Amino acid sequence: MKILVIIPAFNESDNIETVISNIENCGFDVDYLVVNDCSTDNTREILEKCHANYLNLPVNLGIGGAVQSGYLYADMYGYDIAIQIDGDGQHDPKYIKELIQPILDGKADMTVGSRFIDKEGFQSSKLRRAGINFLSGLIKLMCGKKVYDVTSGFRATNKKLTHLFAKDYAQDYPEPEAIVTSVMHGATVEEVPVIMHERLGGESSIKSFKSIYYMIKVSISIILKRFIISIGRK
């Protein structure tokens, strides 16, 4: 099977070379694409130096646009499975096989690498865990599917969902909304236990002073997405 790892990267000069090396040495046969989202540091120079396979966006699209660019690439070149891994070093490629196994077995269309099943490794701050639990409950209320680690950017999709995301993907902090999109289109979403690490360097895209704004925006997006898809299917 053709498998592509999508790595969105914005100002990840501290991390990106290590992330690529870990993927290349994960013991599993995958291709990868770094989507450089118009970084203002020397991320692009590092990608050039290590002869990485990368796409350089001419303008900053944000995390959703960067990931969707990867899905467009995967869809265009006929990949059977697309895997998203953040460029900050939190996600361990050694779990790729476990992540995609339910898709290979035909038991899931999307899998989410979850730090909250076995509760090992980096668990994030108490404030963020509270926010994640709230969004998890909201998604359960909106579409009937319980996913614990709804903001995890470590996930995999089969060809059907890759094609869907190439056309329809949320632009700002899209992970929770992508779960709603998948479930509302009849896809099966499963969680796989993984161990995550603290980011190797740089800054998170979700700053603490923006956390309330983030929660409000994502909550509204989840509710709207659920009803927009429901209306569109009638």
Rank of each mutant, 00 (worst) to 15 (best):
Ala130Asp: 02
Met184Ala: 03
Arg233Ile: 05
Glu48Gln: 13
Gly121Val: 04
Ile220Lys: 06
Asp75Trp: 09
Lys49Ile: 14
Phe28Trp: 15
Ala82Leu: 02
Tyr77Ile: 08
Ala166Asp: 06
Asn53Gly: 14
Ile229Val: 09
Leu55Lys: 12
Phe28Arg: 09
Ala9Ile: 00
Glu17Phe: 15
Asn36Gly: 12
Pro174Phe: 10
Glu45Pro: 12
Phe116Trp: 07
Cys38Pro: 15
Ala156Lys: 04
Thr43Ile: 11
Asn133Thr: 01
Gln101Lys: 08
Glu48Ile: 13
Ile216Pro: 04
Gly62Asp: 10
Tyr79Pro: 00
Ser69Asp: 13
Ser219His: 09
Val189His: 07
Pro93Asn: 06
Gln84Ser: 10
Ile223Gln: 09
Ile81Cys: 01
Leu33Gln: 10
Ile206Cys: 06
Ile81Tyr: 05
Gly202Asn: 07
Leu61Gly: 15
Met184Glu: 09
Ala74Asp: 01
Gln123His: 04
Leu47His: 14
Ile195Lys: 10
Ala187Leu: 07
Ala82Thr: 01
Ile83Lys: 06
Asp105Tyr: 05
Ile46Val: 12
Ala156Arg: 05
Lys126Val: 01
Gly131Cys: 02
Ser13Thr: 12
Val34Asn: 14
Arg226Trp: 13
Val180His: 05
Gly113Ala: 05
Asp105Phe: 10
His51Ala: 14
Ser221Trp: 15
Arg155Lys: 08
Tyr173Asp: 02
Tyr77Lys: 02
Lys49Arg: 15
Asp168Gln: 14
Thr111Ser: 07
Leu61Val: 14
Val147Asn: 03
Glu175Leu: 04
Asp168Met: 11
Asp80Gly: 09
Ser221Gln: 09
Tyr54Phe: 14
Val189Glu: 02
Phe227Ile: 03
Phe165Asn: 08
Tyr79Cys: 03
Glu17Ser: 13
Val189Ile: 02
Ile195Trp: 11
Val194Arg: 00
Pro8Thr: 11
Arg115Gly: 00
Asp37Pro: 10
Gln171Glu: 15
Glu12Phe: 10
Ile100Met: 03
Ile20Asp: 04
Gly70Phe: 13
Ile117Asp: 06
Ala187Glu: 10
Gly62Trp: 14
Leu161His: 01
Asp109Leu: 03
Glu198Trp: 07
Gly137Ser: 01
Lys160Val: 07
Ser205Met: 07
Ser221Gly: 07
Asp149Tyr: 08
Val30Gln: 08
Ala156His: 03
Val59His: 15
Arg155Val: 10
Met184Cys: 11
Asn158Val: 05
Met76Asp: 12
Pro193Leu: 00
Leu72Tyr: 13
Phe209Cys: 03
Phe10Gly: 03
Phe154Ile: 00
Leu61Ile: 14
Gly62Arg: 10
Asp14Met: 14
Gln123Gly: 01
Lys145Gln: 02
Asn42Trp: 12
Thr162Cys: 01
Ser21Thr: 15
Val59Ala: 12
